[in-house]
Each structure stands twice: as C-alpha cells, then as structure tokens.
Computed example of a mutant assay.
Amino acid sequence: MLDKWNRTGKIKAVIVFIICFYSIFISISISKDIERYTEHSLAVSTIAFVFPLLFIPIVVKLGSLFGRKFERPSWNKKIRFLKPGASLILFQFGGYIILFQSLVKILVVGIIHQKIYFLGFPDLFAGTGLLIGVWLATTIISK
C-alpha cells in the first residue's frame, strides 16, 4: 500500500504521525481525575458523530444542485484551501488526524492510568463521523 503513495501522501502520513506522537505526551500528563466526565462525553460524542455525518453530505448535495463540482478525495491529492470543491480532501485529512489522535490518547491513558479516557470518545466519534460523512458525500458525487 505504501508504494502507491506519492510525495503528498507520504507528507500527510508524517503529519498524522507527528500529531499522534505529540498527543502521547499530552495523554501522559492528563490528570488522574478523568472519571467525572463520563455522562457529558456520551452526549458530546453523539453530537460530534451525527453533525459531520449529516452536514457534509447535505452541503455536497446542495452544492451539486447549484452546479458546484466537488473533487473526489484521495490520500495522494494535495489539500487546496482556496480551490472550490476541494473541501472533501480537507475533511478527509482532518478526519484521519482526529481519529488517530483520539485513538492514541485513549490507548495511552488506558495503558498508563489503567482507566478509560472518556474525553477521547468525542474526538473518536467526530473523526469517524467526518470519514463516514466524506464517504457518503463521495457516493453522492458519483451518482
């Protein structure tokens, strides 16, 4: 799989790795009082999952109705902030960053503190919601 990546894909992978490596150090310094956020993290996780899951496909569908062309996201494509229609590439990259960073936080806190880090679940669900929303948007584009 790595042999199919171009320079842009490898740079994106290095950025994701650096952010995950940085979140290891943040996770180590998390206080021991992490259990009191359990009831809030479920509600925030639900909102963080549902909002991008619905928002991205709706925006893409409305944009395509008004004639805007959206670029199909790929790991090897460059992120162009000012190019209209390239927003799905940015959402995909952001989804991967949020997903892997939250997985690292949950695993590191679970290993070091022997507790479940409930504040990492909203990020986990937000990253998953972003990626599923981008996938749904690409199915809308392909129709």
Rank of each mutant, 00 (worst) to 15 (best):
I15T: 15
G67D: 10
R72A: 09
L119Q: 04
I26C: 09
I79S: 09
F93G: 00
I28Q: 12
K10N: 12
L88P: 00
Y117E: 02
R80N: 13
W75V: 07
L130D: 04
C20K: 04
L99R: 01
G129A: 03
W5P: 00
D3F: 06
L124N: 01
P73Y: 05
I58S: 11
D123I: 03
I19G: 05
I28T: 12
K77A: 15
I111F: 15
K61A: 11
G110Y: 02
I34V: 14
V108E: 03
I141F: 09
F55A: 14
P84L: 10
P52R: 06
T8V: 13
V16Q: 03
V16S: 05
S45R: 05
E35V: 06
K61C: 04
S74C: 08
A137M: 12
L130S: 07
W135P: 03
I141A: 05
F121R: 00
L130R: 01
S87T: 07
S31A: 14
V59M: 13
K12M: 15
P122F: 01
E39H: 13
I58W: 07
Q101A: 10
L42Q: 11
G63C: 05
L124H: 02
V109L: 03
W75G: 01
A43Y: 15
S23K: 01
L103Y: 05
L88H: 00
E35H: 11
L82A: 09
Y22T: 11
L82V: 03
G94M: 08
S64M: 15
H113Q: 13
F25N: 15
P122M: 05
I140E: 08
F66N: 13
V134D: 05
K115Q: 15
I28V: 14
G95M: 01
P73N: 07
P73S: 09
L65V: 07
G129Y: 04
S74W: 04
S74H: 08
I11R: 13
I47G: 05
F49N: 05
D33P: 01
G63P: 01
A13E: 08
Q92N: 07
S102N: 13
I141C: 06
T8P: 01
P84Y: 07
T38G: 12
I116K: 00
L82P: 00
I18Y: 12
V104P: 02
I141P: 00
F66P: 00
F21R: 04
T8D: 10
R7D: 09
L103T: 01
S41P: 12
T128I: 11
K143V: 11
H113N: 11
N76D: 15
T128H: 02
I11C: 10
L99H: 03
K69D: 10
G129T: 04
S31E: 14
V134C: 10
E71R: 07
P57L: 02
L136K: 14
L90T: 10
C20A: 15
I98G: 00
V44A: 13
C20H: 03
N6G: 06
Q114W: 05
I140S: 05
N6E: 06
L119Y: 05
L119H: 04
G120A: 02
I140K: 06
F51H: 08
R68N: 11
I97C: 08
I132C: 08
L131S: 01
F81A: 10
S29L: 14
